[in-house]
Design a protein around this nucleic acid. Structure first.
Lengths: 160, 160
DNA sequence: TTTTAATCAGACCAATTTGGTCCGCTTTAA
DNA sequence: TTAAAGCGGACCAAATTGGTCTGATTAAAA
């Protein structure tokens, strides 16, 4: 399987959660309870998303984070690259041209470029809004406020 | 960045190399020299590709591996999933429905499914043939037979 | 028939990466 | 002024990865 780091996974999950109340301010503690993820980890992810202008932080008491733009204008690629850096399947693709010694000879580079572009474009095509509407179908009986007892809602912490 | 394991990276590189002589039999030693990858590693990757019917092994002296089908009929998704298992960005997506306790409640699953399908489809759309024609442009002055001194040709072993 | 060149499989080990925890600091509403 | 929140970095443990080694098997060539 192609590995997405857990942090990036969490990022998508948290953003999805926040998109269910796009105008609200969400704090770390609540999100931690809702998702079952450890509080400091949630905090770390959120602050990264904040630094990349996907979230806006509200400091002080009653603070938290709110979406910086509407879910329609946030793509999955935005979220992933905020946390993991530029989307690329291999290392040499992370940089732009001109940094690799053997580059003019490297017979793989151009192939990888094709592959990476394809994947990146596909992730750019999926918006947070699309995903969170899917979620609504399953969340709408619980009006999505705070602390539910049911833990764990990531794509990660599950197994067969 | 989305991480592809090195082995999968190598898989793509090796297949690309072999696609430049689609009918030929390629042995581990030659491919190792051509790519700069350690021989046992090449061997491990090739045998995995063989077990998934992308390569056909020819044992004994003068043996090696040859492509099991034409490059047009091999997708990047085939290669990656042969080495890494089913293409999925998160663990719970590796299985088919019905294996996760909280599944009926999991608000993320359906979002991930959308994302994964998008990525998988994009990788299925790129064939080995497309990539190796790109390679030809850069390899055609060296008629692509055996051992060149220039090492390292993966998308991985390079940095900035 | 013997030798040699190749695949094949699996065990083992080392090192990198990852992610979780903890700490103390800053900010602001009540 | 206090308490509740974000902020950021240092540190550590553990899981994953990938490279190495060994030996068995196969088949062509001498």
């Amino acid at each position: 399987m192609i590995r997405l780091s857990k942090l990036a996974d969490y990022g998508v999950v948290l953003m999805t959660r926040m998109a269910s109340r796009p105008e609200g301010v969400h704090n770390t503690m609540d999100l931690s309870l809702l998702t079952g993820l450890p509080t400091p980890t949630v905090s770390k992810v959120l602050s990264k998303l904040g630094r990349h202008d996907l979230l806006r932080s509200v400091r002080g008491a009653k603070g938290g984070y709110k979406l910086a733009r509407s879910p329609q204008n946030i793509s999955i690629a935005d979220i992933i690259s905020a946390i993991e850096g530029p989307i690329a399947l291999t290392q040499c693709m992370e940089h732009t041209l001109g940094c690799c010694d053997i580059e003019p000879l490297c017979p793989s580079r151009y192939g990888w470029q094709v592959i990476n572009d394809t994947v990146r474009r596909s992730l750019e095509s999926v918006s947070l809004a699309e995903i969170s509407t899917q979620v609504q179908l399953f969340a709408n009986r619980r009006p999505g406020t705070s602390a539910s007892a049911t833990p764990v809602a990531t794509g990660e912490l599950t197994n067969g």
